[in-house]
Amino acid sequence: MVALGAAGSFASLPAHAAANSQVSVVHGIPAQPVDVYVNGKKTIPDFQPGKVAGPLSLAAGQYDIALTKPGEAIGQALLTVDDAEVPGGANISLVAHLGTDGKPTLTPFVNDTGKLAAGKARLIVRHTAAAPAVDVRAGGQPVFEDLTNPNEAKADVDAGTVAADVVLAGTDTRVLGPADLDLKEGTATIVYAIGSADDKTLDIAAQTVDGLHSAPGGVPGGNGGRADQGPSLPWYGLGGIGILLALFGLARLAVARR
């Protein structure tokens, strides 16, 4: 049995939660379109690499999931998960991607949809590529080190533009930077590194969750009483920003190698 909440926490969900879960599917296996089956029914036909489908509205329960080449039967599936456990009332991303061994795998992540204070944005970054680790630097010094598959990082940050550079882990080899990143207020931006470094197929897939603005009058309390600091974003301590830029750097490096 695989719990689709494995990469996140349901501690904040009430025990009586019975609402359907919203399940998005991310296709991160390079060069292979697939049909996605849920409980034996073709749910997402001809799903292309790099795309995000859904969200599907699924009731709490167990589901069998299969990925096949387009038009092929479930018995010839490229990848299957039996009895995947979907809780109630969650927002989940199910990512088909390459593991560290380069083989296809499925990894579930729970998406943080908590409300954001005015002027804030949420960044969630997921390393789901068969690719090396990276370090993130500010002022030439690493502030987030050795990021690896299949880990994620997140941060609620000031909406606006930031700049940084990234290097391959443990080296001074710059793969990107300085680069600007624009984060929109009231949204959660989820970025996935997908593909394979060895096969030169590294790429980026992105998913956005909007509508996360806080109700008027409740702005300071959601972030420990901190008021909006405007569009400027201090570098130090914001590892999620660096991860995103690092992943973009790896993708750019792969393109340069082609």
Results as ranks from 00 to 15, higher is better:
residue 156 D to Y: 00
residue 117 A to E: 06
residue 133 A to M: 03
residue 91 N to C: 12
residue 113 T to P: 03
residue 149 N to Q: 07
residue 147 L to N: 10
residue 138 A to G: 11
residue 104 P to H: 02
residue 127 H to N: 06
residue 112 D to V: 04
residue 158 D to E: 12
residue 127 H to K: 05
residue 84 A to L: 09
residue 122 R to F: 12
residue 124 I to D: 10
residue 115 K to Q: 14
residue 86 V to Q: 07
residue 87 P to G: 13
residue 141 Q to M: 01
residue 94 L to V: 15
residue 139 G to C: 02
residue 128 T to W: 09
residue 127 H to T: 05
residue 152 E to C: 00
residue 114 G to H: 05
residue 134 V to E: 05
residue 98 L to I: 11
residue 100 T to G: 15
residue 140 G to R: 00
residue 149 N to D: 08
residue 132 P to K: 09
residue 107 T to V: 14
residue 119 G to N: 06
residue 124 I to H: 13
residue 141 Q to K: 11
residue 140 G to V: 08
residue 141 Q to N: 10
residue 120 K to Y: 07
residue 150 P to F: 09
residue 137 R to D: 04
residue 142 P to E: 06
residue 116 L to E: 06
residue 139 G to T: 01
residue 101 D to P: 15
residue 155 A to Y: 01
residue 156 D to K: 02
residue 157 V to R: 04
residue 153 A to R: 00
residue 143 V to G: 00
residue 131 A to I: 04
residue 157 V to K: 07
residue 127 H to M: 03
residue 86 V to D: 04
residue 154 K to C: 00
residue 111 N to Y: 10
residue 116 L to F: 03
residue 113 T to K: 10
residue 86 V to I: 14
residue 89 G to D: 14
residue 109 F to A: 07
residue 159 A to D: 03
residue 153 A to P: 00
residue 159 A to L: 01
residue 106 L to F: 13
residue 112 D to W: 01
residue 117 A to F: 03
residue 151 N to S: 11
residue 128 T to I: 13
residue 129 A to D: 02
residue 106 L to K: 11
residue 90 A to N: 12
residue 93 S to P: 01
residue 99 G to A: 12
residue 107 T to P: 02
residue 94 L to Y: 13
residue 159 A to F: 00
residue 87 P to A: 14
residue 154 K to W: 02
residue 159 A to P: 02
residue 143 V to I: 14
residue 107 T to C: 07
residue 99 G to D: 13
residue 127 H to Y: 02
residue 156 D to F: 00
residue 155 A to P: 01
residue 144 F to L: 13
residue 153 A to Y: 04
residue 91 N to Y: 12
residue 95 V to G: 09
residue 153 A to K: 09
residue 134 V to N: 11
residue 160 G to T: 04
residue 102 G to C: 08
residue 110 V to C: 08
residue 108 P to Y: 05
residue 89 G to I: 13
residue 136 V to I: 05
residue 109 F to V: 10
residue 149 N to T: 05
residue 108 P to I: 08
residue 91 N to M: 09
residue 142 P to C: 03
residue 122 R to G: 07
residue 88 G to V: 08
residue 122 R to A: 09
residue 98 L to S: 09
residue 144 F to M: 09
residue 132 P to V: 09
residue 100 T to K: 15
residue 126 R to C: 10
residue 108 P to V: 07
residue 150 P to S: 10
residue 141 Q to G: 00
residue 151 N to Q: 03
residue 150 P to H: 01
residue 148 T to M: 08
residue 101 D to F: 11
residue 136 V to R: 02
residue 112 D to G: 04
residue 133 A to D: 02
residue 144 F to P: 00
residue 143 V to D: 10
residue 108 P to T: 09
residue 111 N to A: 12
residue 159 A to K: 10
residue 118 A to T: 14
residue 103 K to W: 05
residue 150 P to I: 08
